[in-house]
């Protein structure tokens, strides 16, 4: 199955209103199951361990599908791939971060931090930009 077809099929299944359930032979580590039971009973994490497991699995699948769709899109359209600075600016805008109004400062921070930490993520960039702003204030 080609990746886009698999993605479409997974999305169909995730969006399905089918509430039919199945007993599975999925083997879950005993300690993990006990931790889930405690989270449900003592922390009210979900109505049941089944609900907790299902919600976590759904969230994981949704994240996987979304990232796979983006990765496929970037393969088809390399110019569409956002830079680290683009992502940091987008994160700042979504979070109404004080530096959201200073995209050039964020772009400089992205360049600087990648020189030191090639695996830096957008949150690292914002933290670095904030630190630089504090130092220069």
């Amino acid at each position: 199955m080609e990746p886009p077809h698999a993605l479409d099929r997974i999305n169909e299944l995730l969006d399905s209103a089918d509430a039919e359930t199945a007993n599975t032979s999925m083997r879950i580590p005993i300690a993990l199951r006990q931790a889930a039971t405690l989270a449900v009973e003592e922390l009210g994490a979900a109505p049941s361990t089944t609900a907790l497991t299902t919600a976590a699995l759904r969230a994981t699948l949704e994240a996987l599908v979304m990232q796979a769709a983006l990765d496929h899109h970037y393969e088809q359209h390399p110019q569409a791939r956002p830079s680290l600075a683009d992502l940091a600016i987008a994160a700042a805008r979504l979070d109404t971060h004080p530096l959201a109004v200073e995209p050039e400062r964020i772009r400089r921070a992205a360049i600087e931090i990648v020189a030191l930490h090639p695996d830096a993520d957008p949150d690292d960039v914002l933290l670095w930009a904030e630190a630089q702003a504090f130092v220069s204030a």
Partner: peptide, 16 residues
């Protein structure tokens, strides 16, 4: 396109 996609990529990272 890339600017709009940046925000969706941030969402994807947060979902993950």
């Amino acid at each position: 396109h890339r600017r709009a996609l940046s925000h969706i990529q941030v969402v994807a990272r947060r979902k993950a």
